[in-house]
Design a protein around this nucleic acid. Sequence first.
DNA 1: CTGAAAGCGCTTACAG
DNA 2: CTGAAAGCGCTTACAG
Lengths: 358, 358
Amino acid sequence: MGRQAVTIRDVAREAKVSVATVSRALNGHSNVAEPVRRQVLEVARRLRYSPHGAARSLSSRSTQTIGVVLPDLHGEFFSELIRGIDAVARARGRRLLLSSYHGDPDEQGAALRAMRGRVDGLLVMSPYGDRPGFLAENLPQLLPVVLINTHQPEPAWPALEIDNHAGAVAMVEHLLALGHRRIAFIGGPAHNHDARERLRGFRDAIAAHPGAVGEEYPGEFDEASGHRAGRAILASGTRPDAVFAANDMMALGCLYAFVQAGVRVPGDIALAGFDDIPLARFVHPSLTTMRVSIAALGERALARLLEQIEAGADGAETAGAAAGAAQVMVPELVVRESSGREAARAQARRGRPGKGRE
Amino acid sequence: MGRQAVTIRDVAREAKVSVATVSRALNGHSNVAEPVRRQVLEVARRLRYSPHGAARSLSSRSTQTIGVVLPDLHGEFFSELIRGIDAVARARGRRLLLSSYHGDPDEQGAALRAMRGRVDGLLVMSPYGDRPGFLAENLPQLLPVVLINTHQPEPAWPALEIDNHAGAVAMVEHLLALGHRRIAFIGGPAHNHDARERLRGFRDAIAAHPGAVGEEYPGEFDEASGHRAGRAILASGTRPDAVFAANDMMALGCLYAFVQAGVRVPGDIALAGFDDIPLARFVHPSLTTMRVSIAALGERALARLLEQIEAGADGAETAGAAAGAAQVMVPELVVRESSGREAARAQARRGRPGKGRE
DNA sequence: CTGAAAGCGCTTACAG
DNA sequence: CTGAAAGCGCTTACAG
């Protein structure tokens, strides 16, 4: 005692039955006599026995664990995504094995390969979906996979993603409807798929409206780059009517720059973001943005993965069959003060947007 | 092929060596002839072989995985904590097996027991440390453990925690130094250890200063309860000079209530929070608060756990020995606008607080 | 340097 | 309903 962990053999010896019977009793199989079952459970409790996870996984070929491989584990987006995944995992009695790789493709490859024999399925978000062969080479064979916000040139795995293009178009149309004509866009990282799609939506929407004028400023999805962009916008010769930042963090950084310069939002210049992070409604003025339910994205991704896992042991085959086009989630316009007070009121009166959490 | 995963036997057969040699080659043991090693690696690569995690763990008695059991996985606090843990885990080549239990003690017990045979050590945060026997009964025996922000009546495991009491005292003293006399405190959940310690600090600091007057309002650590408390404070007969919310989220909710009521901060009433969440510096006015480096807490907790793990296989013994008093991390006062503009300037001029990220 | 064999702690047909 | 035995896929003394 004290040195060696208690195993199923200890329980069997103490309960005077075979390990097979202990296993069956503990796993709730029906073919165990009731008094025997009780005896086993009682001994297991008394010895504080817990089954050895690796041993159980190895022999049962099931881990009750879901692998989650993400670019990062912290920050608003991943936190919400994990919340959604966690909610479903808990409800379905699954554990979560998380890995992050911080932008290193090799590390992501290693993380994916390390999942073999540890999980029953994989939720993966990768910016490298575009690289030929990357996913095929790094995703464990035979393991059900659902991709999240990961662009696949040719869909080979089931996937869920946010329709960033549609969201950006909706925001530009909102700004135009408020009478703003010259609109500055603060973009995200060039290699980021969300950022690219939002940029594409911005350009398409501007191009579709004669009279609309677009300008673009670079950004990195963080406050600091939003702040820099805000200063650059103020320093530019002609001040735009509105600024559309590709995410809320940059919009906040930009707002901060405007506040520092004494420029009033939305009086002097309108402002909008993307994501609807919790802070968006707390800043002053509150921020007009596109609401993306990240948690719902996580929930649906795991739900879909569990369908595959439960559909049968024929992992890859099922996955291949279920692939097809990515399932798309469309963001919702949330009108608040920053895009133009009067118009916001007018829209609110008509009872349209922003009826959610406001 | 296609149906069966490739195992070490497939690699051995293909490379014309024994499985033992494959294992040694793949694990970088030195006792493998160079040409043989190359051949094995080449075959493994070609077959896209990855070792089976459970099998490897079972036979090597090591998982390279750290179990993390937290009340919740999302939200600012846990997100930051996980960030710190993740940073160290990545640097040291460890994976993270996460479990949340959302306030259900039975579920936490189950999560803890399920870790056996899946992890090499455990990072645990639990509000049930006070219940007699809870930790002793639920923590897997023989597994190194470090507790985070978990109160133990009699220290039995190594632990790290935030010194919330000292933080609250420091904040009250700051408010008093600014000339505020009547101070309202918005508390957190009654069963929450952090909340209780902050409340205790508030009371002690008020009691230590003749002339200071304290009032208390209930809260739940979320924006909504801060908002309610803010309204209750305005509705009360005598308006306090300052409000000290036990966390930033409530401070923001309170601020929102004040803004709605046309009450100016800090002109009409000063406001302070606790935690220094990222938004704290973006709201208007920016929020005076206590900075708690949650990420550092996570980093240090895992670093300490790894020390134990690497110290030897004698898990519980080492753990017991290393226990002693909890290692304490003291929050830092960050003075911004909300606690009183003039005073903040004055302090800034003296070059004291808030020199961090500002 | 290499291989045959035992063993990690379970689960699960297979007999009875 | 129960047990003896094989097997899950690895690692690691033990011999040589």
